[in-house]
Nucleic acid binder design. Sequence first.
DNA 1: CACACAAATGCAACTAGTTGCATAATGCTA
DNA 2: TAGCATTATGCAACTAGTTGCATTTGTGTG
Lengths: 176, 176
Amino acid sequence: MSLRAVLLITLQREPGTGYDVLQRFKTGLAHVWQASHQQIYRELDKMRGAGLLDCETVPQAERPDRKVYSITPAGRAELDAWLAAPLGPSAVRQPLFAKFFIWEDWPAEARQRELASLREQLNARLQAYAAIEKEWFSDPQALTAAQRAPWHTLRLGQQLTETWLTWLEEIQAEGE
Amino acid sequence: MSLRAVLLITLQREPGTGYDVLQRFKTGLAHVWQASHQQIYRELDKMRGAGLLDCETVPQAERPDRKVYSITPAGRAELDAWLAAPLGPSAVRQPLFAKFFIWEDWPAEARQRELASLREQLNARLQAYAAIEKEWFSDPQALTAAQRAPWHTLRLGQQLTETWLTWLEEIQAEGE
DNA sequence: CACACAAATGCAACTAGTTGCATAATGCTA
DNA sequence: TAGCATTATGCAACTAGTTGCATTTGTGTG
């Protein structure tokens, strides 16, 4: 259901194609939602079938047609209903934590590789956040309420990543 | 794949039934992995079929048989392979963040309910952590290396939850 | 010129997880 | 004594997400 809602949100802001949505998921929305192109195309088609989206096919010279989706009143209603209902708790799945539960059998070198790899991932994430911040929220003082809200989500993302990194550094220091 | 690995870990520590594993997922492993009984039973049977687990059926007077699973050498090998390979990055899916991206159309009362509900969930999580800490790690000084590792995961869980709560309080304060 | 990449879409087969229902005994509570 | 929780298992149908492959044309790189 949540992918649907995210698609409705991005398309109510501005109609677009599956490919457009994919690009938004890769840049401005990267810390909010990620999905493969296959999933996006399939879901958009299902939503059109369910009457939540309209689809206008724009032929292009010598290239595959662009299918531009826009939200319908029914889609708008579904989005409003989703906004109104608080989200349920999400399931906990922490494969890394599981490895810590079998510490005795987790070879030291594998462990060090794992933690180094995680560290890279976390640093890469911080860089991605910085890029988004620079592009969209370069002046936090000048933000309107509507811009300020998504900016808060970026801040939380950064803070969570920093919490991870601090913990990681402690663990790595202890490992020597 | 990760559910498999988590099942291998819990069963190599001590053989048990699907029901046993479910109980462990509800208590000591609650911040590591959660899965429904259906998923667990199905996966255990598939793993037995793949030769990763042995199954011994223990009949009980007037109740359904207990099926006690234990890990085989093949299962052990699969677990070792999983431990050796660093985990890939996990997909980002933050439905709450998505709601912040449509702030203009997110009614204030729905928003307040959402944040209040989240706050309860986070506080409940902290309480669950405290219960686990009390039961398993009451004396952090006296922990062996093998106990110390899972204790670290609990600490990170707590710190992440606190990061969330601090952020939430800021957002709620700003909302007035 | 060959090769890779970007723009733009899609099918098919798979794995992972959810939801609803069902069974069957025991023990506890109103 | 009726109803509910616990112990213990499972099927069937569903939704969600992944992986591998395939098409067509332009544009840039070595």
